[in-house]
Simulated assay, not measured.
Amino acid sequence: MFLANFTYLATLNLSFNSLEGQIPEGGVFSNLTSQSLIGNAGLCGAPRLRYPPCLERSRSSNKHLLQILVPTVLENAIRSFVAECQVLRMARHRNLIKILNTCSNLDFRALVLQYMPKGSLEMILHRSHSSCHLGFLERLGIMLDVSMAMEYLHHEHYKLILHCDLKPSNVLLDNEMTAHVADFGIARLILDDNSMISASMPGTVGYMAPEYGSLGKASRKSDVFSYGIMLLEVFTRKRPTDVMFDAQLTLRQWVHRAFPADLVQVVDRQLLHGSSISGCRLDDGFLASVFEVGLRCSSDSPDQRMTMRDVVVTLKKIKAEYTKLVATMSTSAAQ
């Protein structure tokens, strides 16, 4: 095409011209995007995809921004993106991930999210090379942060919001080890206070409540189930999908069989060693209290599960009593 000879032409928009044939390469055509070619069904060949300007600025000027890029050809991904934008735009809480910007064109759908330097809870728990050691108080604090975020979504936001995919990889940590709940790609905004809704997009195997996994019925209680499984995972350092678990033995069943008299068989051994701050004795009852919360939240029966409000109250009480005990022990040791 003769347009390739226009070497000083910076941009070119050929949309809606009913053009046909192969898209040339080189020159101004190397900068074409899908948006500049829309409405030309007879053209073949693919232009080089470019980042939207807002992402280019983020990439070049701020290394502390996390970008999530989703090709628009994926219909499910687009729905996921729209849902996440809607939820994040409307929800504001210190323990929810902050959305800094959104970008959208025919090539990309993108969220620019607050960067979390410590990574995910899943990474810290399960990657052997992780340099971050989580003691009892750190784990308790993280799960309290998560519970407060979920309490906000379930009970304090002006519309009920269900997360539908709560798990350690969706909990991100900042430099102060404050937890931020992320990934609302399949979250649901509930317009009324019905107890359940039908969800066409499943969560993650191992964390899904029985009624959600089998019937696709999501509710506050299904989020609570996921939270309970995650709480058990954090204090045992065993994934619900670990090879030791199967249809005959789940993570919850494994913990339940050991509760409360034989928790030494299931608790993460790192918590039974070290200082009083990083460790925790089984005989002081704090670990048993935490495991009880996890077991109650992950009950097979939705009616027997705790609410996130009750979880927050319980964990705050455990944290306050444990902190008081550690302070008393430190004072006694200093005398």
Rank of each mutant, 00 (worst) to 15 (best):
H154G: 05
L125N: 03
S120C: 02
L160M: 14
H129E: 15
L140G: 07
F184I: 07
D174M: 05
E156I: 07
G135R: 02
I124S: 12
I161E: 01
L125C: 01
S128M: 10
C132A: 13
S131C: 13
E156K: 13
H126E: 07
I124D: 05
E138Y: 14
D107H: 13
G135S: 10
S128C: 09
A182L: 11
H180D: 04
H155W: 06
L140P: 04
F184V: 07
D145L: 12
A110D: 04
R127C: 11
H129M: 14
H180Q: 10
H154I: 06
A182F: 08
D183L: 08
V146C: 10
R139I: 07
S169V: 10
L172Y: 01
Y115P: 04
S147V: 06
L134D: 05
C132T: 14
E176K: 07
M150F: 09
A179M: 02
M148Y: 02
Q114P: 03
H180E: 06
H157P: 13
S131Y: 08
D107P: 09
D145P: 06
L137H: 11
L162Q: 04
L111H: 02
M148L: 14
H129F: 13
S120G: 02
D145N: 15
R109P: 05
E122P: 00
S128G: 13
M123A: 11
L134K: 09
F184P: 08
L121G: 02
M143W: 06
D107A: 12
V171R: 01
V181S: 00
H133Y: 11
H129G: 12
L144G: 05
S130D: 05
C164K: 00
L144F: 07
L121Q: 02
E122C: 07
Y115W: 15
V146F: 04
L113Q: 03
H129K: 15
N175L: 06
D165I: 00
L140M: 12
G119R: 09
N175V: 00
H157L: 08
R109E: 10
L125Y: 02
E151G: 08
L111E: 00
S169Q: 11
L106A: 12
A110T: 05
D165P: 00
C164Y: 02
I142R: 05
K118H: 11
L162P: 06
M150D: 08
I142T: 14
A182N: 13
M143A: 12
I142D: 03
E122I: 06
Y158F: 11
F108T: 07
H155I: 04
